[in-house]
Design a protein around this nucleic acid. Structure first.
Lengths: 341, 341
DNA sequence: CGCGATGTTTTAACCGGTTTAGTGGCTGTC
DNA sequence: GACAGCCACTAAACCGGTTAAAACATCGCG
């Protein structure tokens, strides 16, 4: 038995038809007698023929792959709970369609733009996911210029020609703040992510406005960077205030868990002296001591929805609608309690 | 100006030569006058021509991409500190060579094999990284059968036709145990990973033999699964022993941090009542309270080395040697101290 | 001057699909 | 019985590169 994989010509000769007919049969084109189609498919089946991606790619000018550019510092990326689950969700859609996921990790800045350009110039992918959206994100214009289809993860603030897959950060943040308010907290602080990111400001403005609706001013808003180290620093600054907060809401779990450690290192007991809440419900959130009150989203479904939507764009459907996912849910654990008397 | 990207024919006509000549010039083949080469490269440059990956792929039967199949439960994968940094290291090599990284996330079992088969049948990649090596790993035979080149991350126990990139887990484990011994601990337990994994047993046997060398029996070895939930359970079991350990060595940070939480929840003070050590030096290890004594490897360099080695295999070099990376280093933090009197 | 050797460049086939134009057979109609 | 019209299918060009073989100069040498 030959080790070479069969080509369309092998199938054609075995079925006694032309290459073109095989192609028609495979792609379900009309204009072939159904008996012929059966004969061709049977021959293909017997030979175990699968059309070559490479040849198809060349003739139809498609890559049959989608791209994800992750613009993060490796160290930061290292413990991000979002991407792995998101990617798994994307994969669940792609593998069913015989597509592949091409990953590109770039460090921010110069290289970021280069990453997209490379993906476009090499024609490695048919479309990309735009994650970690920033305000007036320059990548949107870049992708338009490159002619690369995309979906944005969450809604950009400028106009965007791309559909958005949205997981609203606000309801989760609002739920956390209201939870703390109902416990009796009045001195609440926030550790935010970098304001350049849309999801960071979405969380911090939701924080402020929820407090405002209750007639309360935030104790402080510390801008940080989503890293554990940043969480520590921000927490220390908050605890050194003349009148420190009785509760801190962090923009992600990583900063929250680090903040928890900082509070404990400073001799505080959580939640008796200080309540702490995170955002993401990462795996460790449940298992640190005390368990972290946080907000749970579903990055797997996010990935699924994003892949489906991007495929619609890539397939040329016009006016692909935005997709709104169910917002993140509050998960109450032991790290939040009534403020000290 | 035309929006279409130039083809090799455009370059050829602009330089006044044939397609073949352009191809020769591009690939640095001998047999062209250097003046001609210059002329061709100049023309290519003016047109901004970059050869089409798709066409090249078809004619030379290469994908110009490498594959990584991650066989993990998304939930487990979520907070693994290894892969993101590893991937970043891989990328740093691939992007310089114009290659892409194709990611495939599969759930273990049936689907795992299917994942590799798909990658091979679709000819999406020229080679793959074999991670999370298991004892008598069936994937090695599978890859041989599929004719897909590979490198293994760490050394398999059977014979393997593939080069291995090795980061020896033992020195780090030995260092942790010796550190605990030198602090005066004599009742030390281990929380191991699933014994099917090569790196899990490497760590546990290093643990046992280091203790044995000091003439000490381990208090217990709890087999767990590298997850935080598993770390909690194993820790509880250890703490319920009639004579509980004064120190626990975990096979990874995730279980260790969860174990830290479990110990604190049980009313113990770390490190006064119990010393705890992890493995990986994940980002949070430094920032939990108390900071986690652990072992630091360099997954970024691991990725670099693996990509370089796999490329040698893919390029057809014979007898590609194994690569041995510097072993992980002990990082002493506050979670380990002398045992209680 | 004719010949082979050497160096340079072109020609054309090939990779494995898709797609357009075209061909041959059959039916229906006047 | 000739012709239009339709159906089912084939032939061949095409996607954009690579590459083996052929062609063409140029040169050295007997």
């Amino acid at each position: 038995m030959s080790k070479e994989r069969p080509t369309i010509a092998d199938v054609a000769s075995r079925a006694g038809v032309s290459k073109g007919a095989v192609s028609f049969a495979l792609n379900g084109r009309p204009g072939l007698a159904s008996a012929t189609v059966d004969k061709i498919l049977a021959a293909a089946d017997e030979l175990g023929w699968r059309p070559s991606n490479r040849a198809r790619s060349l003739s139809v000018s498609k890559a049959f792959a989608l791209g994800l550019v992750i613009t993060r510092d490796p160290a930061v990326l290292s413990s991000d709970p979002f991407f792995p689950a998101f990617i798994a969700g994307v994969e669940s859609v792609l593998s069913a369609r015989g597509q592949a996921l091409v990953l590109q990790v770039v460090t921010a800045g110069e290289e970021e733009e280069a990453g997209y350009r490379r993906l476009a110039q090499d024609a490695r992918v048919d479309g990309v996911f735009l994650s970690d959206l920033r305000h007036d994100d320059p990548r949107i214009d870049l992708l338009v210029e490159l002619g690369l289809p995309a979906v944005t993860l969450n809604r950009p603030d400028g106009t965007s020609p791309f559909p958005a897959v949205i997981l609203d950060d606000r309801p989760g943040t609002i739920a956390v703040v209201e939870h703390l308010l109902s416990l009796g907290h009045r001195r609440i602080a926030h550790v935010a992510g970098p304001p350049a990111f849309v999801h960071a400001t979405a969380r911090s403005t939701a924080f402020v406005s929820t407090l405002a609706a209750a007639g309360i001013e935030p104790v402080a808003i510390e801008t940080s960077d989503f890293t554990a180290a940043g969480g520590i620093d921000a927490t220390r600054r908050l605890l050194e205030l003349p009148e420190p907060p009785t509760a801190i809401v962090y923009a992600n779990d990583r900063m929250a868990i680090a903040g928890l450690g900082a509070a404990q290192a400073a001799g505080l007991t959580v939640p008796d002296d200080l309540s702490i809440a995170g955002f993401d419900d990462s795996e460790l959130a449940e298992y640190v001591h005390p368990g972290l009150t946080t907000v749970r989203a579903d990055p797997f479904r996010f990935g699924e929805a994003a892949a489906q939507t991007l495929n619609q764009v890539v397939d040329g459907e016009s006016d692909v609608p935005d997709v709104e996912l169910p917002p993140a849910q509050l998960v109450v654990r032991r790290s939040t309690a009534a403020p000290p008397a």
